[in-house]
Structure formats: C-alpha cells, structure tokens
Simulated assay, not measured.
Amino acid sequence: MSRKRILSITAPLLAGVLLAATACGGTTQGDDDDGGGAATGGTADPDADYQTGLSIAMLPKSVNNPYFDASSAGAEAVVTELEGTYEYTGPSDASASSQVSYIDTLSQQASDAILLSANDPNALCASLDQARAGGTIVVTFDSDVEASCRDLFVSQVNGDEVALSLLEMAAEQTGGAGEIAVLSATANATNQNAWIEAMEAELESNPDYADLELVDVVYGDDEDEKSFSETQGLLQTHPDLKAIISPTTVGIAAAARYLSGSEYQGEVALTGLGTPNQMREYIADGTVTEFALWDPTALGELAAYTAAAAASGIITGAEGEVFTAGDLGEYTVEADGIVTLGPPTRFNADNIDDFDF
C-alpha cells in the first residue's frame, strides 16, 4: 500500500547519526543512467536515474523538535540510499532571522539541495535567491515560502483537508457548540496561517459550525514553555472555552501537559496535529480524545526524493511532471511546483498503539 494516498500502519522512526559536514559538488550519474532527464511540455521520465553523490541538507523551523527529527530520519535514509551526503542543521528558535544564516552557509558550501521548512514566507527569499543563483536546488517542505523563491514545495497534505479535519474533530469533541481557540506556532508560519484562514472561512460559511465561535488565536512560537504558558493564558482569558485546536506538534504536546495537570482536564477538549509517541500518554489519561497528523518520516523521504529528482534533472518543477519516490510510489508535480504527500490520519485510543513515530 503506497503512503502516497494512505498512511502505512506502522512508521518506525529511523535511527541514524546526523552527519556534521556537507560535501560540495562532485556528483556523478548512476551506473544505469539511460540519459533520461526532464522532458519538455510538462512531462518527465518517472524511471530516470537519480544522481549519486548529491549533497543535501535539511533546515527545519527549529531543531530538537520530534516532528522534524522524524522528517530528518526519513530524508537521511533516502540520501544514504542515493550514496549522497546529508546534513541536518538549523536554529534552536523558530524565527526567520535565525534561518537566514544557515541558508547562507549552505549556499557558500554549494550544497546541491536544501530542504527547508520556512518560518516566514518572504523574509528568506533574498538568501534563497542567492543560493539558487549558485546552483542549489531549494525544496521547501511542511511550510512554504513564496513560490518564486524556491523550486518546489512538498506539502504534507492539502491545506483545506487539514482545516476540515481540525474543525470536524473540534466539533465532535464539543458537541458542535461553544467557544474555541487556536494555539499556533509562529505568527508568520505559512502553513499554520493557511490552515487558520481556511478554518475561519469554514466557520463562516458552513451551517454545521454555526454554534462554534473562534474567540482567539495565540502563538507559542513552537517553544514548549511558551506554548504551555499560552495555554494557561487562553483558559484564564476565556473561562467558557470548550476546545483548543493546536496545529503544531510542539503546541499540542505542551497544551496537553498543562491540561493533564489542571482542573480543565476532561472539561476543555484539545485536538490538533501531533505525533503518536508525543500524545500517547494524554490519550491514555483522557486529556485528549483524538488528534491527527501525516507521517513526518515519509514527508522527509518525499522531500529528499523531490530534491534529488530536481538536482538530477528528472523534474524541473513544471506542472504535470512525474517521478518515482522509491517505495512511496509515483508523484505528480502540481501547479506552482507543489508535490503533495497525502491526507492526514486521525489517532485515538482505538488505533494509536498501531503507530510508532
């Protein structure tokens, strides 16, 4: 069963030692190269060979984040399979200014490709343009920049699907009525902002949600302690709050930790996006009923394959191009250079123990 459409039943986190240095240039074509590259007219040969020896680096929003650790493990496994060199590097704080210096360093090292989860859609563009001018392929994943600033974007899911899933879970857990709030990552996070906008539009237009009221959006900056404090602040500011939606793995875990030790456990619903291993204890103790996510390891794998395909000339980022991402299967480049992993999966007491990531 391909994870292109349905998340596999188990996704063990791949272990590996993160490499500290990235090799520069020196790529060679695979032994079985048939000379196939990206064709004109929006098509490509999905069976064309990847280059070996590619240097690929992943730059997440912040390091020491279990979600991005899983993505890194997936990417590193792909790069290793392709006989390339891999680096996982980034700031400890989720800010755009912190990411700029890392982009500049990778650009100076002449990395073949950068896998970037952006903290801002615009602030990184100057550095990314410089990297691309030097021949580095820029593939964003998880959180995008302006399309003109990168080559391709690997989206975890369709944004509207995420928004609908989050609202559906919140409605189910509140009986479809009451005040709800959002605990997001950073104020400039492209993906979270798109999901929040889609949720707001759905709340306004869908009569099924007429009795739900979004009363606040706060930002934990993908920092555990700040997300914990923001959760406390939400509950103090809105004593009638019925549910918190946190579309970030750091935020939902911090919110769950606060709720589990408070008078609000079982009274205020919490849902959003989290990893099963983070949230298992909170499902077990009744703090959380259900949450969702895609497989972050597979997301890292797909990002690495996409970057390698672009660096190998298999795809250019044109709509309609097709490439094969190993065991994940075939993927088609969509408009604006987007490649989509697949729909989110919901986790609850009935299935959470089937997953390990």
Rank of each mutant, 00 (worst) to 15 (best):
V157E: 14
G233L: 03
A126K: 11
L341P: 00
S262N: 09
T287R: 06
T89E: 07
A187C: 02
I9V: 15
V215H: 10
A298R: 00
G42F: 05
T28H: 12
A133F: 08
D327W: 12
Q29K: 15
D69I: 13
D354L: 15
G36E: 11
V217Q: 10
A75L: 00
G41M: 08
A304Q: 01
A48R: 01
E179I: 06
T297W: 02
L124I: 08
G300K: 04
T174G: 09
D33K: 04
P239K: 09
I283P: 00
S229A: 15
P46D: 06
A309G: 05
G313W: 06
D142K: 04
E202K: 15
T249D: 08
V182D: 01
A255V: 08
P121V: 10
T28W: 10
N191C: 05
D285C: 07
Y305I: 05
D31E: 14
L18A: 12
A21Y: 11
F68T: 02
S143I: 03
R280M: 11
E290R: 15
D69F: 03
S165H: 09
N351R: 09
A185W: 00
Y102I: 10
L270I: 11
G337I: 03
A126N: 13
V17Q: 12
L167I: 13
D49M: 09
D354K: 08
